[in-house]
Computed example of a mutant assay.
Amino acid sequence: MTLPLKVLSLVAGLSLAFNSSATPVHSVEGNRYAIDQSKLLELSAEIKTELENNIKNIRKPGERAVALHQLMFGPDGWQIRYDFDANLSAQQAWQLRRGNCLSLALLYVASARYVGLKAQFQRVQTPAQWEQRSDYYLVPGHVNVAVSTHRQRIYIEFLGTFYDFEVDPSQGRRISDKQAFADYYNNIAMALMDQKKWPQARSTMQTAIELEPDSDMYWSNLGVLEKFSGNSQAAEKAYRTALKINKRNYSALTNLYVLLSEQQRKQEAKEISNKVQKYSRKNPFRLAKLAGKALVNEQYDVALSSIKKAIKLRPEHAEFHYLQARIYYRSGAATQGFDALQRAAKLAEGQDKQRYEQKVAALAPSF
């Protein structure tokens, strides 16, 4: 018997593609960047006292695991909340009452072990969720926690509010503390890269690689870091190292293709172009970009085909429907364009929603 617990969601490792980066890191006073790995699972005396008073004396391990979950996230407990950008240690997550999925896992594992539970980190396979930033794409990863007792295995899940799909928490791959720590340093390095703090980012990324040298994801991310910092030679070496470890790392392959193309190494780029194009077809933002280019060139059939594929992958993304509306209008299909514009207005938020609704109101009398 297993007892999956649905809680929150966030990022574990960040797999990056197309000249990628990551989100800024929240920091604690006096600890602006990565902290020593020996402190990632450290708990204060205050936390330990609360665990002793509320959790430690519960006799049955399964009930103890559930009670810990309720203490962390329940309305009568610590009320820890999900924060996509918060790459924190266990202590910091408790102190700031927030964390991403890795931070939440660190806090749960540290607390669980203190109260006598056997808790381990898991990396969980999830469908690719491309997240667009200003000039790159980010593919979040995910971790959860498995608690083993003599009668059952309980999965502590931190997924639900960020993603729009379900996962089977039992399908996670157990990872060591060292591998979880490597994910933490990878996240911090990517955040530092986003802030253009190149020496700190490079040093932190090297720490992640030292902890898990056979991770193609980390090598690919190092390549992105080197490319952004202007070191193309080191970037190429990192991408190729990633591909030696895993020839199907399409993030590394795509970034290598971009690098070779920029350097006018046409023959080398051509040799991998088919694989890159196949991968790009799975990226809705890439498809939308192709649709936009086709629209500019008045290739309406190509534009519609591309944007429809993007919408199929990310139907909730309002900008895709707005682009579809523009394509329909330009091609003379005004009714379909108005329908697409209405969908965009319904899905949009903030200023985009107001802008789309104004367009709908202006066009409505014609339909």
Rank of each mutant, 00 (worst) to 15 (best):
R202N: 02
E349W: 09
P213T: 03
Y33C: 02
N246T: 05
A90W: 01
D301C: 04
S203C: 06
L10V: 00
Q171M: 13
S306R: 14
S111R: 14
K270R: 12
S366N: 14
V360F: 03
A252E: 05
P213Y: 03
A318L: 09
P140T: 02
E262D: 15
Q125W: 06
T149L: 09
Q171C: 12
A348I: 02
P284D: 09
A65D: 06
R240F: 05
W78Y: 09
G172K: 12
V115P: 07
K178F: 02
Y33K: 03
I156T: 05
D83F: 12
Y136Q: 08
A34H: 11
K353A: 14
S176M: 00
E212N: 14
A325H: 05
Y137M: 13
S38P: 00
S148A: 14
Q152E: 15
P199W: 07
H142Y: 13
P213R: 03
E357G: 03
Q351P: 06
F228S: 04
F84Y: 12
S148G: 04
R133F: 11
G230K: 05
V28I: 11
L192S: 01
Q200R: 09
G223S: 04
R173Y: 10
L253G: 07
A22Y: 06
V28F: 04
V167H: 07
A334D: 10
E262G: 15
P140M: 06
K244A: 07
T335L: 13
D168Y: 10
K48I: 02
E268T: 08
Q120G: 07
N297F: 14
A180L: 13
F285P: 01
I245V: 01
D183Q: 14
G230H: 08
L51I: 08
K275H: 11
G99R: 07
V66Q: 15
V258R: 15
W78G: 01
M190W: 10
G223A: 04
N100R: 02
L313E: 04
A269I: 14
L341C: 12
S331Y: 09
Y136M: 07
N186F: 03
F73H: 11
Q263K: 10
L106M: 14
F181P: 00
S229P: 05
E210H: 13
N144K: 12
G292D: 11
G337K: 05
K237C: 02
R326P: 14
R123Q: 13
Q91I: 00
L102E: 11
E212T: 12
A180K: 03
A362W: 05
Y250H: 11
A146P: 04
Q132Y: 09
D36I: 09
A252Y: 00
P199C: 04
A119V: 07
L3M: 12
Q125K: 07
A334V: 15
S306L: 09
P61L: 03
Q299W: 01
L68G: 09
A340E: 13
N187A: 08
S103M: 02
F320R: 07
A361N: 15
R64N: 03
H142F: 05
Q122N: 11
S280I: 03
G230L: 10
A294Y: 06
V11D: 02
A208R: 08
A348F: 08
K48Y: 00
D194V: 06
A189I: 01
L253S: 03
A67V: 03
T254V: 09
E262R: 14
A180E: 07
M1Y: 14
N249R: 04
A45E: 13
N87Y: 15
